[in-house]
Design a protein around this nucleic acid. Structure first.
Length: 396
DNA sequence: CGTCCACAGGAATGACGGGCGG
DNA sequence: CCGCCCGTCATTCCTGTGGACG
């Protein structure tokens, strides 16, 4: 054992692939954002009036995941903050990820906290938090930027009340000004909104197009030239990562993850060069980790449902699936959920990409949803192995 | 061309637990 | 400690519907 460990340590220590691994992490904000010059300029243009003490327009930013929306926003606001400090204007930036904080309450609570007020995790009414926020913020003169990242998650879940309140907040403030930057992955997001919110939130709009393969390649090679040591990767590796990510809607985050994990795999294997096969392994690993992690943390009934899906083999109607699920549940001496609830669970699985669900009409023999599992048995096994009873039921 | 199956999926409501102010 | 408000999960009841069959 000691030998093996020594061996491992020496391999890790002698690995010379990464020069600066931090730069490959998804939350790293680089100093240059290639192919986003237009957006940077445009956003800065919109927000710059804050430096002269007037309230900039609210901005709305669209773009599919991994197109640099968050990075550009953070980058520009950081520059503006710096500049504000120089000219002696107090600017505050509240960054809120609405996917993580997807209730009106938590968004407000986060806003409060970012201006320095501790708010109980729960317990107060939402309007009380709102009132506190207004009072606090207006106690002195300042400019606040509220960045609502992935704001579509919030609205889809709880409606646009919070947004409405926020857009109207300026009318209740006498000294402080708030400007809202909304970021969304959903291009049709505006349709969900109340027209009043739409017009005040969308004073300015900014679209981030997806990166194409050559842009991704450029981004990757720039980043890699800092993060990796010299001569540790082939140009073809970068090309492959870019191509794979371009297929996933031009997601730069995905591309960077892919490259980083490829590097890690190469390092783990004791190679001193990243090869194409490492990239392919990395892609499998990313997918596996995602799926396994998601399933592992699911509630029991969802797991049983997945298992039923697996046992059903190649697709089945909700009716068949529900029957199988019920017998499985009863065998475990549990009460089955209603069909209605299961229907929601199926949709959830579909959203997560674990299952495929498609409504099919069979004429007068009804309408149903044909569901099938879209993950490999191997990954399923790994995800369910913690639960003996479920794991044992997996087919060969 | 109307019927009618086998569900989809919306709305309302309830049970429950966490966490606060008082 | 109680009462309040919250979010989450679940149930019940319900209306809607694509298209093969007759």
């Amino acid at each position: 054992m000691t030998d093996q460990l020594d061996n491992l340590f020496s391999r890790v220590l002698s690995a010379k692939i990464f020069a600066n691994r931090e730069m490959m992490r998804p939350d790293y904000i680089p100093n240059d954002l290639p192919h986003r010059e237009d957006q940077i300029l445009r956003l800065a243009e919109i927000l710059a009036p804050s430096l002269k003490g007037s309230r900039p327009s609210n901005v709305f930013i669209y773009g599919v995941p991994g197109t640099g929306k968050t990075a550009v926003t953070k980058y520009v606001l950081k520059k503006i903050e710096d500049e504000g400090r120089k000219v002696g204007i107090s600017l505050e930036v509240a960054y809120i990820n609405c996917k993580h904080d997807d209730t009106n309450y938590r968004v407000l609570a986060d806003l409060c906290e970012s201006v320095g007020e501790r708010i109980p995790f729960t317990g107060l009414s939402t309007s009380e938090v709102f009132r506190r926020f207004v009072n606090l913020v207006d106690s002195s003169e300042r400019m606040i930027f509220a960045i609502l990242d992935e704001v579509d998650a919030l609205v889809k879940k709880t409606g646009d009340k919070a947004l409405y309140d926020l857009t109207r907040i300026n009318q209740r403030l006498s000294r402080t000004r708030i400007s809202i930057v909304g970021i969304t992955n959903d291009l049709k997001f505006m349709e969900y909104l109340d027209p009043r919110v739409r017009s005040s939130l969308g004073e300015e709009e900014l679209v981030f197009p997806p990166y194409d393969a050559s842009e991704l390649e450029d981004i990757l090679s720039r980043r890699a030239s800092f993060a990796f040591n010299r001569n540790t990767f082939e140009a073809s590796v970068i090309k492959l990562c870019a191509a794979l990510a371009a297929k996933e809607h031009g997601d730069a985050r995905r591309a960077l993850d892919l490259l980083r994990i490829s590097g890690e795999i190469a390092e783990r294997n004791g190679n001193n060069k990243v090869m194409e096969e490492h990239v392919r392994m990395a892609q499998k690993e990313i997918e596996k980790d995602r799926v396994v992690e998601v399933i592992r943390t699911m509630p029991l009934h969802s797991k049983i449902l997945i298992l039923s899906l697996h046992l059903l083999g190649k697709g089945g109607s909700t009716g068949e699936l529900y029957d199988l699920y019920c017998t499985l549940v009863k065998n475990m001496c549990l009460e089955p959920l209603t069909q209605r609830r299961v229907s929601d669970l199926i949709n959830e699985l579909d959203m997560l990409g674990i299952a495929n669900a498609k409504v099919v009409s069979k004429g007068r023999y009804g309408r149903t949803k044909v569901v099938s599992l879209s993950i490999s048995t191997k990954n399923l096994k790994e995800a369910l192995q913690e639960d003996q009873r479920l794991g044992a039921l997996i087919k060969k």
